[in-house]
Design a protein around this nucleic acid. Sequence first.
RNA 1: GGCCCCAUCGUCUAGAGGCCUAGGACAUCAGAUUCUCAAUCUGGGUACACGGGUUCGAAUCCCGUUGGGGCCGCCA
Length: 441
Amino acid sequence: MSFRVRFAPSPTGFLHIGSVRTALFNWLYARRTGGTFVLRIEDTDTARNTEQSLHTILDGLRWLGLDWDEGPEKGGPFGPYFQSQRAAIYQRRVKELIDKGLAYEREGAIRFKMTRAPIEVADLIAGRVVRPLNETEMLDPDFVIVRSDGNPVFHFVNVVDDMEMKITHVIRGEDHLSNTPKHIALFRAFGVEPPQYAHIPMILNPDGTKMSKSDPDVAKARLASLQTYVEDGYVPEAVRNYLCLLGWSPKDNREVMPLEEIVKLFDLPQILRNNARFDSTKLLWMNGEYIRALPLDRFLTLARPFTGGRDDPKVLGLVKEKVKLLKELPDWIGYFFTDDYPFDPEAVKKSCGSPHTSERLLKLADKFSAIAAWDAAGLEAVLKALATEMAIKTGELIHPCRVAVSGKSAGPSLYHMLEVLGRDRVLARLRRGAEKFRSVV
RNA sequence: GGCCCCAUCGUCUAGAGGCCUAGGACAUCAGAUUCUCAAUCUGGGUACACGGGUUCGAAUCCCGUUGGGGCCGCCA
């Protein structure tokens, strides 16, 4: 049997983080089974359908490394993969139902004669779910499949496409579970065996509410959009790994793990049935883990959009260990590229308030100026020797030195930082600091 | 309102009747280490929603309650 799954987003201008996980689970299942991952664009709502919206989807999937086997820019044997280009297929299928006496016109719209009996969904995740018609539906069970303006609606085109594209497993959000009987009824009307269904639970806001891209609370709305994570400087590997862990687990206490490993273990029945809340704190932690483990080349590539052209590999290599979010990069690297960096008042107060600060910085500058080979090991030796000579703790030199050359109390390993900064700049900044801090006391 | 799904630390989860005085991770607290911050290491606190069953025995099975989520559109 050949497995065929699909991700069928609607181009709305955003890629919802929940949709992203749905895409990811579909992709994982396809890769795990050696099947086919189809990307289909549900652009029947022409008002929202723009070129830009399409690229949001394609770029988002690419960013995460979720490659599709059939779909836009790729083609395939079951195209076109845009619903807006499949009108003829839908018309043919509508006619088929009318001819069979299973659909009829009323008030200009075409309605499907829905089964009155309860329909059972054999869901791979939720189990057997029987959903009888409810109060409202009982009044009028039939539903519209083609609007009076001639455009077919979601339930219809979704089923027709899954059928035509020979989708074997529909993996989608749990919000579709209640609609599934409609879809099964449609498949049966066409005399076609429905696909297997797997409804994955939802991802909720930290407070348990539904994640929405149009939430009036801006912070929540940001949380819901993939774009946020791209802009804030999360690395795709981390976002992907984190998302895998929402509703799925390798069950052996591993969390940070390579995709290939997840592909090997992933399966549908073991997906949790309960909703998960999005925990951005844990994502942030995982992002830091990934960044520190990143090979320098990869880090440089990912960092490029955030550095403002300041792509010195030595500098970036130095701060790689410190960064948790790529967008923090400008703060970490600023003083490597200008002498006009800001001084953190707190740091100055704390580390440079001693009446001896200026004298010590000048002494340090003198010692450093005599160094033959300007490297971290040599700098460390000289600084420590000076501390001993002056009978003070190394920290009493280290801290003022760090503030003088960077303006900050936090940063990479001091000696490596001095090495990268270079002799001229270090000496100048030390002497400038000696002047500057004289008045602090 | 009707119907459907769900319920283990604050959060993500392990647990498929005895291995559980419930394990891991993030967060948090305390300590160690370090040139700062971070990282790292050690240790602590924190959970089976509630009530009934079934069983020799239940976090695990059943029922109910409560709570959360979803769907009931000529949106997708």
